[in-house]
Design a protein around this nucleic acid. Structure first.
Lengths: 204, 204
DNA sequence: TGTGCTATCGAACAAATGTACATTAGACCA
DNA sequence: TGGTCTAATGTACATTTGTTCGATAGCACA
């Protein structure tokens, strides 16, 4: 992509970011300092043919640019000695958090309370993503409600019965008795920890 | 908001989701089975006045609806005994992951390798979000490059010099000497752990 | 019954917008 | 010098689109 074509795509992305809708051809011309609409039109046609843009013929403000890869966050694994960290060869992939969370719809974050799952690296204040489900397999970590209390534990079924296992030797396994009110809330799928509290999230 | 008004907003949201740009007034009329454009127009004016929609007068396809709160993931904190988990009263807020990551642009995920930060709840395979910066304060956790190796440690400056501190008694502090090639890569801001490997991420 | 009120419709108009085409300007090269 | 190509221009036109206004139909209520 030439430098000029990139300016087109960038302008469209920024305009949509700022306004929430796409620019018209004349607005693109004005924004890029071009005097004629046909200049813009021919460039848009070219970029659409190359797949860099998409637009519907005849429809006003229908041009869109695919959001760049950085809508996902790059994952850097093993770093080759001597190369800059963010170099292309170090990028192993991207986590497309947007799609990731779209697929996980229905789930929710549970705020972790105590240290009972410390040895699994789950600490107070962590956000644990729970995928709701009614049952859970042996050995999986999940959120449970027992006698009104909600807790995050490992589910374990043995010959001696069912237990909710902490991951911290200072805590004791919780036996699940027939007489207990017990319910599986969901499966522990993901953990999110916000280290800097500057990254606040909007409260309802 | 009445049932009918809700249908308007929902239609606009879905249309934008499907097409990437907003519907025209006539497309809204067709989509909702209305015969006249003025019906739509008056409803849009009403919804805009109420703040449920936003549009620029005269500009084609400029109507947008604020994305509903569920574009973020609900956060559930302390759960009131007896109430269903996902009940409204238990939702403390939302993590708008989309905006969250937009603000963090420039950062990247580093894949954690060993157990040296175990006591901070950072385990192998975790994705650590690094916000690039050239310096770091005493006591903060960050990613560093020392003599070609990249490592995640707590930065500590004492009278005896600078050390990279592990969070695991089986590991030793790494002294940073004048003769070392040393560089701050960035600050540890967030941690993401994918428990289920079914949630794969697209490789480059 | 009749009187407002609201939602909807129908049609017409003006502005915004996409599209097509002939023309010009400049760069490059034989 | 002349030719060719590309980018850009200017203009005109057709379509899409937002806007306006009057008319109609249903509905609640006195």
């Amino acid at each position: 992509m030439t430098e000029k074509q990139k300016r087109f795509v960038d302008f469209i992305l920024r305009f949509r970011e700022d306004n929430g809708y796409s620019p018209s051809i004349r607005e693109i011309a004005a924004g890029l300092g071009l005097a004629s609409t046909s200049t813009v039109k021919s460039m848009l046609d070219k970029l659409t043919a190359k797949g860099e843009l998409s637009m519907i013929s005849g429809k006003a403000r229908s041009v869109t640019a695919p959001e760049p890869a950085c809508s996902g966050v790059p994952v850097i694994g093993h770093i080759r000695a001597g190369s800059p960290v963010m170099a292309e060869e170090n990028i192993e992939g991207y986590i497309p958090v947007r799609e990731f969370l779209k697929n996980s719809s229905g789930g929710f974050f549970l705020v972790v309370d105590g240290y009972s799952m410390k040895d699994k690296g789950i600490l107070p204040g962590d956000f644990v993503f729970i995928q709701p489900q009614k049952t859970i397999s042996n050995g999986q970590i999940g959120a449970f409600r027992i006698n009104g209390e909600v807790t995050l534990k490992t589910f374990r079924r043995t010959d001696d019965g069912v237990f909710l296992m902490p991951a911290n030797e200072e805590f004791r396994p919780i036996p699940v008795l027939e007489s207990d009110e017990f319910e599986v809330i969901g499966r522990y799928v993901m953990l999110l920890r916000l280290v800097e509290k500057g990254y606040d999230f909007r409260l309802a």
